[in-house]
Design a protein around this nucleic acid. Structure first.
Lengths: 138, 138
DNA sequence: CGCTAATGAGGCGTAAATAT
DNA sequence: ATATTTACGCCTCATTAGCG
């Protein structure tokens, strides 16, 4: 049962219909993420500052923090080995990444929760944490 | 609930029918391929720029990139190390994944072009190919 | 013919909207 | 504030169809 809601914009004017989807670019993201690190649930005043800084609507900023908190929580659940194990189960794919259980890593140089890549050339080598991968894959 | 969308053609006319096949000439191709080299999956803003630059409809540009990626993938059998190297170059981040060149994998059990994950428990272990990761990250 | 522009189904991520 | 749902944009994949 969808109801057309009245949306109050920053300038005080009101408009019918939904707020158009905002695209948060990399620059905005940097500012927001930075703020999030030190204060994941900022009060109105801080949000106002962020809003002015980025040019984003205060409501947009608020929703972003809400979603970011939700995502972080979701992510923590994902890191739970049970979830991870479930994703890998039976060689099912995760975001197109197929798991090959027959070829498990047997070395000890790779720490827990880490991914290592060994390419043909040294500059191709890579070491990232599982959390980062999940962030990327999520 | 799908709704038949109105398609706006290049000449400005609109119709619910099919879009006539666009002929992408050599000049367009050069621009697009050039852009593709540095960024195979451009965002809306870039596509808009390309669209304005060539005179092609934004949708046409988007489809071209989609088809181009599909073609590249179709043709690519083995991993192109240059592509990988370019992505990791200078420790830049890709999709939020930071590359730590200081922590290269030194074991030999991980084959070329492969990623290994070693978790706390055996069932958490994972082995995926670089191609799959690239596909996922692309 | 081969090549490729275009389509449609289906999935994913996430901003926005709504419910609790 | 959190939890859930909805809507949108973009992607892939398989197919279809138009042009040289």
């Amino acid at each position: 049962m969808n109801v057309l809601s009245i949306v109050y914009f920053q300038d005080g004017s009101e408009s019918g219909g939904k707020r158009p989807r905002t695209t948060i670019n990399a620059e905005h993201l940097e500012t927001l993420k930075d703020a999030y690190k030190t204060w994941p649930a900022p009060k109105r005043q801080v949000r106002r500052q962020l809003s002015a800084e980025t040019g984003l609507d205060m409501r947009v900023v608020q929703v972003w923090f809400q979603n970011c908190r939700a995502k972080e929580k979701r992510l923590k659940k994902n890191v739970d080995r049970h979830h991870w194990g479930r994703l890998c189960k039976d060689g099912r794919s995760l975001c197109g990444v197929k798991v090959d259980k027959e070829r498990l890593a047997e070395d000890d140089s790779v720490g827990d929760g880490e991914l290592s890549f060994k390419g043909e050339h040294p500059e191709d080598h890579l070491h990232i944490s599982l959390t980062e991968v999940l962030l990327c894959l999520s």
